[in-house]
């Protein structure tokens, strides 16, 4: 912990790909160093029908970036008269972050999305100054990301169906946050499919 701004409030998020489905999950803790303030602080934001962003890091910047991104995506849809695609959202987000290259927002980001026509899946991650990533199978950001990477790498299989994907994502997140004192207190998991989006709340360890 110490003085690191990125772990001042705690929290973690994870995204994983399946076959024509994608899952994005986060914990619910909001704390100030070792003290837990709230246990209903979710870090996933929806932009458009099949586009989600998770932001982890300094809570004030999580809120600022999510609101500024909302503003820009709204303007985009008004001006362009079309729905937001995951790759567009990702480019807007990394662009927004890079605008503050020399006084950055202290957030790491995940983007998860799906093309409702083709079923193509998208998972991207970014650092706090908007470095772009490939379209990956598995991404995690936040204080417990090291714990989750090991589990995620073990639980991930190509072409999982929505139920398998939910199970793999939940297991990786819950077991990961249990070893991290700065995140936890329950979790939420979105499973995004072509025709539906399912939100599940997980209880997990309450400590």
């Amino acid at each position: 912990m110490g003085d690191d701004i990125m772990s001042y409030n705690g929290g973690v998020a994870l995204a994983m790909k399946g076959k024509e489905c994608v899952a994005i999950a986060c914990d619910k803790r909001y704390g100030v160093q070792n003290r837990t303030i709230a246990t209903n602080f979710t870090k996933i934001f929806q932009y458009g029908d099949h586009c989600f962003v998770a932001l982890c890091g300094l809570a004030t910047d999580v809120q600022t970036v999510s609101e500024r991104l909302k503003f820009r995506t709204n303007l985009y849809e008004l001006r362009e008269q079309r729905k937001l695609k995951p790759i567009v959202l990702y480019n807007m987000l990394t662009n927004l972050l890079y605008e503050r290259r020399f006084g950055p927002y202290f957030v790491y980001a995940l983007v998860a999305g799906l093309d409702p026509k083709t079923g193509e899946t998208f998972v991207y991650d970014s650092d706090n100054i908007g470095a772009i990533s490939d379209n990956v199978n598995l991404a995690t950001v936040g204080t417990a990301s090291d714990f989750i990477f090991g589990l995620g790498e073990l639980f991930f299989k190509p072409n999982m169906n929505p139920d398998e994907l939910f199970e793999a994502t939940s297991q990786a997140l819950l077991n990961g946050v249990d070893r991290d004192s700065a995140s936890g207190w329950g979790a939420i998991v979105y499973v995004i499919e072509k025709d539906k989006i399912t939100l599940r709340e997980l209880k997990g360890r309450q400590d």
Partner: peptide, 10 residues
């Protein structure tokens, strides 16, 4: 250790 320990827990 951070990658492996939670796997062993599970």
């Amino acid at each position: 250790m951070p990658l492996i320990l939670p796997i062993l827990d599970a």
